[in-house]
Design a protein around this nucleic acid. Sequence first.
DNA 1: TCTGTTGTGTTACACTATAACGTATGCAAT
DNA 2: ATTGCATACGTTATAGTGTAACACAACAGA
Lengths: 138, 138
Amino acid sequence: MSAHIHAEQPALTKNQSLVYDALTRSKAPLSAYAILDGVREHGIRAPLQVYRALDKLLEMGLVHRLESLNSFVACSNSECEARETIVFAICEKCSKVSELADDRLEAQLNALASADHFSVHAATVELRGFCKQCRPTG
Amino acid sequence: MSAHIHAEQPALTKNQSLVYDALTRSKAPLSAYAILDGVREHGIRAPLQVYRALDKLLEMGLVHRLESLNSFVACSNSECEARETIVFAICEKCSKVSELADDRLEAQLNALASADHFSVHAATVELRGFCKQCRPTG
DNA sequence: TCTGTTGTGTTACACTATAACGTATGCAAT
DNA sequence: ATTGCATACGTTATAGTGTAACACAACAGA
């Protein structure tokens, strides 16, 4: 196995590093403009600079986009690049995001799609709820 | 069973009807502003009028929001209100959206979340790919 | 009738994302 | 080395998505 984490990626450029670091430091997902606010002091001034860096980071798999929040998170799962389907569990109280992966779920989704003669290229799966720490019961 | 389709809903108001009809007529998902363009001739002039109607229609379950497209579709599945998880299969060629539902998938998602001690309130599942008619093989 | 709730209409604004343009940097091939 | 190309950068302007705040209208129930 020797699972390597995001290996063989080209080095990050200055803007990409700034954006990636901002996301890594944050405990919660950040919008592109929230990222911008965080990197202004480092010389980035325009939204486009952030979006361009994000595009590359998304390509490399270092960052994920949460469609239901219009926000971005640094990848926290060393295995995620091996999969086409990642499940994001988004806590509505503390905003923490967990990445879950499961081969059976992916198979299930593909089976469901196949039954409808639909061929899947990409899947977005985002769960809203409470994380372990924030659940009413504790 | 006697599956009833969206029964016991309050009657739609004028604006709600206009927005719902626009979505029903459309073969593809519509953005709020695309809906607005479609109902201007009927007296709706401002985005907020559309968003307010959409909010109610979403509450009633007559309309779904596609997070990955920032767009809306009229519900096409008589069973969907009985479920908390609907899978949307979005064709990237013809834009057609199918609603798929599957108890096993829902169970699978809940199991996956439970393993992480996450309690699910809502789920977004959107598949991108090609529908039966648009697949390369036909 | 009074009152609360829901829906409506309007203006203004905030947030999210991209188009279009030009410049700079690095690297490969001659 | 210089030419040529690809990639990244910086800036301005603009497009697309979504709400805040305020006022008025319609209607139901006490």
